[in-house]
Amino acid sequence: MMDVTLQTDRLLLRMFREEDLAAYAQICADPEVMRFLGNGNVLDRAQTWGQIAWFLGHWALRGYGMWAVEERATGELVGRIGFIDPEGWPGFELGWTLRRSSWGMGFATEGAKRALQYAFEALGRDRVISLVRPLNAPSIKVAERIGERLEGEVELFGSKALVYAAGRNPG
């Protein structure tokens, strides 16, 4: 399995580790954080462990996946940013989720911009999507800030998701 690490001025995007479980479980147990993800339900510790295993399996099977996001100044896990494209998914998706105490600090935009650059330059992707629930205004703003534009909508886990997309810049 690849071990790809990315950096920004304030963030380290790295592979999930077993010792991330406690901090990531706190994020996944927050109803406000989980409100627009999947079916909107919080995850318990065992479900969170399963999600981390799923992220790592995605790396093993696809060669890309979701990174744990660490704040470089503190070493604390603040969320996840990266790619998913499991069987039957609407496309190669860039997603982001941060703990509530890290909202509004520009971390999602900063990390997503770096991940998008990686998708185009290192993975050779021509198109990247982000699926965002219509009421998730902060994530819509992140998608727009990283250069994605609204393309349409799909049904995801029984409800509507907006499809934001960005293409590789020519040249």
Rank of each mutant, 00 (worst) to 15 (best):
S159A: 11
S102R: 15
G147A: 05
M105Q: 15
W96L: 09
R99S: 15
R168Q: 09
E155N: 11
A46Y: 10
L61P: 00
E121I: 01
A108I: 06
L116C: 08
G65D: 15
G50F: 03
W103G: 01
A112C: 13
T48M: 04
L77Q: 04
L77M: 04
W103F: 11
T97L: 15
A29S: 15
D126A: 10
V163S: 04
V4K: 14
G171T: 02
Y64C: 01
L56N: 14
R114D: 00
R125D: 00
G104R: 12
G124D: 04
V4L: 10
V42Y: 02
R72I: 08
L94S: 03
R72N: 00
L37R: 00
A166W: 07
E19P: 01
G82Q: 11
P90H: 10
F83G: 02
D3I: 06
G147C: 07
P138V: 07
E32N: 15
I146V: 15
G63R: 11
G82D: 11
W49P: 00
R10Y: 13
L123R: 02
R125P: 04
F107Q: 04
I52H: 07
L6T: 01
Y164Q: 09
M2S: 12
L61M: 11
A115S: 15
L156T: 01
F83C: 10
G40S: 09
L37I: 15
A23Q: 12
L94I: 06
R45P: 00
R72G: 00
Q117I: 05
L56T: 03
G104Y: 11
L61K: 14
L61R: 15
A115R: 13
G106H: 07
I52N: 04
M34D: 06
I81N: 02
C28G: 01
G50C: 05
L98P: 01
Q7I: 01
D85S: 13
W96V: 03
A119Y: 12
L116Q: 12
D3W: 06
A68M: 13
W103I: 01
G104M: 13
A53K: 11
L150T: 05
P31L: 09
S101D: 14
L56V: 08
G79F: 07
N39V: 12
G63Q: 09
A165Q: 07
S102I: 01
E70N: 08
D44S: 14
K113L: 14
C28P: 01
R17M: 11
G57M: 05
A60C: 07
Y118H: 15
R100Y: 05
E155Q: 14
